[in-house]
Structure formats: C-alpha cells, structure tokens
Simulated assay, not measured.
Amino acid sequence: MELAKLSSKGQITVPKHIRDVLDVKEGEHVAFVEEGGIVFMAKADLDSIHDLQEILSDSKFKEVVRKAKQLK
C-alpha cells in the first residue's frame, strides 16, 4: 500500500513505486475509475484503459468489491 497526501488544491504526488508500476512519466495522463466506492488509477492509454475495463467487468472482481464494501 502506498499513501499520498492531498494538497489544499486537491493535488497528490503519485508515489514513485506506483508511477513505475503504471509506467507513467512527467506530462503523461492517468485515468481514475470509480467502481463501488473504490477508485482505480491506470495509465491513460487505450491498452491500459481497455485492460482495466475488462477487469472491472469480471464477475469475480465484482464479488471482491462487494465483499470489500461489507468490511467498511
């Protein structure tokens, strides 16, 4: 788990480990997708967003999200 602090302007610094995992560099875009109260971040290129959409539509993944919401 990585943590980031929200600035007064609503900005965060994405931790280096996460930038490396997403393979994002300065000036590139990231996409945020909310599903069941959980927010996912992905590199904003067509392949990455397509992969994320496939994961989010998977029934097993939806069950994990449902269980996670019950833990709140």
Rank of each mutant, 00 (worst) to 15 (best):
M1A: 11
E2M: 03
L3D: 09
L3H: 07
A4H: 02
L6G: 04
L6W: 01
S7R: 00
S7N: 05
S8D: 15
S8Q: 13
K9S: 14
Q11A: 05
T13I: 14
V14R: 03
V14C: 07
V14M: 14
V14P: 07
V14D: 08
P15R: 01
P15Q: 00
K16M: 07
K16P: 01
I18Q: 02
I18P: 00
R19H: 09
D20P: 03
V21G: 06
V21W: 09
L22F: 05
L22G: 07
D23G: 12
D23P: 04
V24N: 02
K25Q: 15
K25P: 09
G27V: 04
H29V: 12
H29F: 13
V30F: 05
F32M: 14
V33F: 02
G36V: 13
G37Q: 03
G37C: 03
I38Y: 02
V39R: 00
F40K: 00
M41Y: 06
A42G: 00
A42H: 01
K43N: 12
A44G: 06
A44F: 05
D45H: 06
D45E: 12
L46V: 15
L46A: 15
S48G: 05
H50T: 15
H50K: 13
H50W: 11
L52S: 02
L52F: 00
L52E: 01
L56F: 06
L56Q: 04
L56Y: 06
S57L: 10
S57F: 08
D58L: 08
K62Y: 10
E63L: 09
A68F: 08
A68W: 06
Q70S: 14
L71R: 04
K72D: 12
K72F: 13
